[in-house]
């Protein structure tokens, strides 16, 4: 049962992401409205997938990725970054920081579902191997 943490300061955006990913079997969703809240959540409970907005009021998605990748227990957490046209420079930085995938608004439910499925299946395969 994948635990997904959806982080965006826009409630509508979070709900759209959840609506897109809900068809993935048995997934459970937690929403966070800021980068800091996301980091706090990640310290309190294990997650299987992080969907992250780049632009947030306190600390941005890139800083969250940097922080997450600096934590031993979060090193392999799959991360999907949601960006907007104009974020190209930040995309590059997020990629270097260790984000796995990018979705640029507007995206379709199929595209983000596909990305989530690929990442979740990859990490569960790695887990069973390891």
């Amino acid at each position: 049962m994948p635990e997904v943490l959806v982080v965006d300061d826009s409630k509508v955006m979070r709900e759209m992401v959840v609506a897109c990913l809900r068809p993935y079997p048995d997934s459970r969703f937690t929403q966070a409205s800021s980068g800091l809240e996301a980091i706090e959540q990640l310290s309190l409970k294990p997650y299987d997938l992080l969907v992250l907005d780049l632009n947030m009021p306190d600390i941005g998605g890139i800083e969250v990725v940097e922080f997450v990748r600096g934590q031993d227990h979060l090193r392999n957490l799959p991360i999907i970054i949601v960006t907007t046209r104009g974020d190209e420079a930040s995309r590059e930085r997020a990629l270097q920081a260790g984000a796995d995938r990018f979705m640029t608004k507007p995206f379709t439910p199929d595209s983000i579902q596909g990305a989530a499925r690929a990442l979740l299946e990859k990490s569960s395969a790695e887990a069973s191997r390891g």
Binding site: S10, M13, N55, T84, G86, P106, F107
Partner: peptide, 11 residues
Amino acid sequence: HTLKGLSAMVD
């Protein structure tokens, strides 16, 4: 920025 992204989503 948020407005732009949201508006893109709802076209």
